[in-house]
Structure formats: C-alpha cells, structure tokens
Design a protein around this nucleic acid. Structure first.
Length: 462
RNA sequence: GGCCCCUUCGUCUAGCGGUUAGGAUCCAUGGUUUUCAUCCAUGUUACAGGAGUUCGAGUCUCCUAGGGGUCACCA
C-alpha cells in the first residue's frame, strides 16, 4: 500500500511551497487509495512553537486535505531514537566523537582556506584511546568512505553521490538529542513510507538518510524531489513577494479549490487541462509526471482560477463563505438573484462582497464623472417620470423582466434611447457607471427602495 | 569555492527524432452587453548560446552561459 507523508517543523506558518509538496503527497496517496500521514518534526525544542503547529493543522483543515491516523510528534519518540543510537553504537556502526565545537570550527576554516569541501575528518572513527576531559561527546554514524551512494529519484532520475561527499555526520548531539537526518530516516521507515515526496532542498539529505537506512537495515522508499517555487522574477519566494502563508489566501478571499488547482499545475500537468476538480486531480495525478525544473509563482493564473470557481459555486455555499467578509445574505430573500447578478464580477470573495454591498447599500455619494455625464439635460425629468411609473405600475414587480417592462415603456413613451434612462438610473441606484444589470438590481432592491434612491438622486441634481 | 539539479512564449506548461512548435494566463483588437464584468472570436510573443550525432534535433551527446539547491551538535 502506498504511504506518503508531510513532515513540517513547527517553526512558522504553512508555506505555499510546503502546501504544494503536501498536495503532491496527498494526491499520490489518494490516487493509490493509500495513506497520507502527518508528522511534526519538533526535535529542536528551542525553535518549536505550539502556535505554529496549530497554524499548520488549521491550514490543512482549510484546504480540506485530511491525514490518516494520529499526528506523529518526534518529540515524543526520543526513547525510540535512543534505542537505535545504542544499537548502532553496540554494533560499531556509530561512535562517540570528542571533538569540541572549537576544534570543529578550526577544521572547517582550514578546509575553506584550502578551498576544499568542509567535512568532518573522521578522527574519532576508530579512536580507542582515553577520551579528553570535560567534553561531552556527540555520536557520529560511520558513512561509507569510498564508492557511490546511489538512488533513483522519481523526478530527477538516477542520482549518484560520491561517498566522499557524505561525512560521518552527527546523529546525536552532546546532550543526547537525536538529529534531523537520523530521526527522519527512522520515522519514515517505521511509519511504513513507500514514497517520500519533498522539496529538492532535501536532495542532499537523501544520501545521508540512506546511510541510516542501511545501517539499520531498513527498506529504502521511493524518493521524489520537487523543485522549488520561485517568485515572478525567478528568485526564491520570500515574504516580500506577497502572501506565502497559506492562510493569507483565505483572508484574501481565495477558495481552497482554486489554490489547490493553482498549485497542482505548478510543476505538474496533464496535457492541456487547466481546470481540475479535487476528484480529477486524485484520478489523474502521478508523481512520475512531476517536472524537473522550478516554477515561478504568478498571481494572474490564481486569480483567474479563483474567478472560475466563484462563478461555478452554488449560491447558498457562496453566501456562507461571504460571512467572514462582512456580507450576511444567507437569509436574504433575493439571495439567488443577488449572487447571480454579482458573482461574475468578483475575482475574490473580497471583491464579490464589495459588489454585493454596492447594490445593498444606498450610494452615499455619486461618482463625480459619472454624475456629470448621467445627470444632465432631461435626466431629472426622466428619472421623475420613471419613479412615478414604478409607483403606479399595475402589474406585479418581482422579477428582472417586470422591471424591464417598465424601462421599455418609458423608452417608448418618451421616444428616447435606453441610455437616456439607463445611465441616470444606474448612477442613482449605484453611485457609479459600472455594475450589474439594471433590471436585476431593481428586482433585488424592490420598487420602494428603487424609488427612494431615485428621489434622493433627483434632490442631488437640483 | 566543491558537489548536485535545472533552462520551450512575460508567466504556467504540452512536446518524449519528422508538428505551420500546441494549450492556458497576461496583453491588444473585435463581437455580445443600455454600462462594467462575464462570454465568444482574432492577434502579438518561445525552443539560453555553441559544437557535434543523424537524411532529419526543442527532443540524443559534449561545452559555455545563466538560474537554483546544498555543504551545522537547524530542520
């Protein structure tokens, strides 16, 4: 069975790039009807925070990516790691290193001066003498000293790293706490991971982890290293480039399905298809199709996708989603009409909320340019007659077509073009020259409110 | 600096030795709409550069350039 995972360290919010690798992992598991596990990498007690962990979990909840089983916390598994450290020590596959931090720094400086690769020189690898006083040793693992460490990466292809590139790295600190590459390999193996999908900044950790897998006799999973997401300029994505926190997209009025659709197309594709429902992604996703090259983050496409998903969302659901944006129309009797008239005009929920408020709230002022153009000539008279027609109309006024009939009547009676009534009417009702169709707006407002706004505008003209 | 990875329209990408190099987004123009938006149509723009291999190269090989990653008792 396919088992994938996402393993963030709780040092901050969930990053947009992290969400993409999580999505790839999640899709791979869903596709194979396998399991997607969540593990919190909190071995560095100094940098962890409970808030960060909660923020990450919350982000997952928002996008609707659920994990299987309990969340695994590495901080609760130290006994387990300790067991494996002792085992390796006993088997002679790991050893105590008494080199002080100062000595290590000196060695590194020396190597840098010689323009060599900085690496631990293995001086305690076969040490049998008396250890120096006053130094708490670290534990280092014996990495192969010659040959190649090879693995097949599902994205990058065949990888061959010279053993000389991997030194005897530390698996337990002086205080006994295990280190990242050690615990990741153990947990991935013990949790039964079959496919490890992660950012390619981890590419160089892989040979190290393979050393651990081999030392402990664990089965090596498939690796997929996904290239980074850069900003529009092709540089590393940073906070300066706008939203990098997944939850920022919620507050900016993006739909999770739009964000996921956007992310799945960054580094992955299925022919010419652009729109993928979650179900389609699950059916079609294959990590083998992940691109080798890095991709640039581009807001245009996300905006386009978001507009698409808003347009196609049922009105009742939209009404619920709009609540956090200060628009509560769930109980509005013209809900359907209101959203049908506005949802094609908002690329985000924020914009959609603005569009709705533009209709629901009587204009406090009139756009200067629009008013100048619309409220001229006989506009005042036309508006007055139109209001009067609305008040004396002998048929019911409910639907847009009912109001359209009134407009047709005034146009016919006065032998004027639609613009003559349309423009002043629009500015009277909305305060501006843009927006939804007049028939729809009037039907939403009702005759009384329409007349009231017209009268207010007439006063303004005078 | 060592090692490793990457390079098709501005951006996301299709392409897996033979295509007028396709789609999407953006932008522009036109149509629809009493306005705006939507929608529809049309258009501009790309194989980083150079050598090879081959009848034929975006596709294979090498070199160069550019970009990125990584070199912790962080994860």
């Amino acid at each position: 069975m396919t088992v994938t995972r996402f393993a963030p360290s709780p040092t901050g919010y969930l990053h947009i790039g992290g969400l993409r690798t999580a999505l790839f992992s999640w899709l791979t598991a869903q596709h194979d009807k396998g399991k997607f596990l969540l593990r919190i990498e909190d071995t560095d007690m100094a940098r962890n925070s409970e808030e960060a962990k909660d923020a990450i979990l919350k982000a997952f909840e928002w996008v609707g990516m659920s994990h299987d089983g309990e969340v695994v916390y590495q901080s609760k598994r130290f006994d387990l790691y300790k067991k494996y450290i002792d085992q390796l020590l006993k088997e002679g596959k790991a050893y105590k290193c008494y080199m002080s931090k100062e000595e290590l720094a000196a060695l590194r400086e020396e190597q840098m001066a010689k323009k060599e690769r900085t690496r631990y020189d293995g001086r305690y690898r076969d040490f049998t003498g008396t250890p120096p006083e006053g130094v708490d040793p670290v534990i280092r693992i014996k990495a192969p000293q010659e040959g190649m460490i090879s693995f097949k990466d599902g994205v990058k292809g065949e990888m061959n790293i010279a053993a000389t590139e991997v030194d005897d790295f530390v698996i337990a600190r002086a205080d006994g706490a295990p280190t990242y590459n050690f615990v990741v390999a153990i947990d991935d193996a013990l949790m039964g991971l079959t496919d490890v999908i992660r950012g390619d900044d981890h590419l160089y950790n892989t040979p190290k982890q393979i050393v651990v897998y081999n030392a402990l006799g664990f089965k090596i999973p498939n690796f997929y290293h996904v290239a980074m997401i850069n900003n529009e300029q092709g540089k590393k994505l940073s906070k300066r480039d706008g939203a990098t926190d997944v939850m920022d997209y919620k507050t900016m009025g993006y739909l999770p399905e739009a964000l996921l659709n956007f992310l799945v197309r960054l580094g992955w594709s299925h022919g010419d298809q652009e729109i993928f429902s979650i179900e389609e992604m699950i059916v079609l996703f294959d990590p083998k199709n992940i691109n080798k090259s890095s991709s640039n983050y581009n807001l245009d496409k996300l905006l386009w996708l978001n507009a698409h998903y808003i347009k196609n969302k049922p009105n009742a659901e939209l009404a619920e989603l709009l609540k956090p944006f200060g628009v509560d129309i769930a109980e509005h009797d013209k809900l359907e009409m209101l959203l049908d008239a506005t949802k094609e005009r908002g690329k985000t929920l924020v914009e959609l909320a603005e569009q709705i408020n533009l209709i629901l709230r009587a204009p406090e002022s009139y756009d200067e340019k629009a008013a100048k153009k619309a409220f001229k000539g006989e506009a005042k008279e036309i508006l007055r007659d139109f209001a009067s027609m609305l008040q004396n109309w002998d048929k019911p006024l409910h639907l847009p077509v009912d109001y359209h009939a009134v407009m047709e009547k005034i146009v016919a009676d006065k032998e004027i073009g639609f613009g003559k009534i349309g423009m002043p009417l629009r500015v009277s009702l909305m305060g501006a020259m843009t927006g939804s169709g007049m028939d729809e707006i009037m039907a939403i407002l009702g005759a009384d409110e329409t007349v009231s706004r017209i009268e207010k505008a007439i006063k303004k003209i005078a």
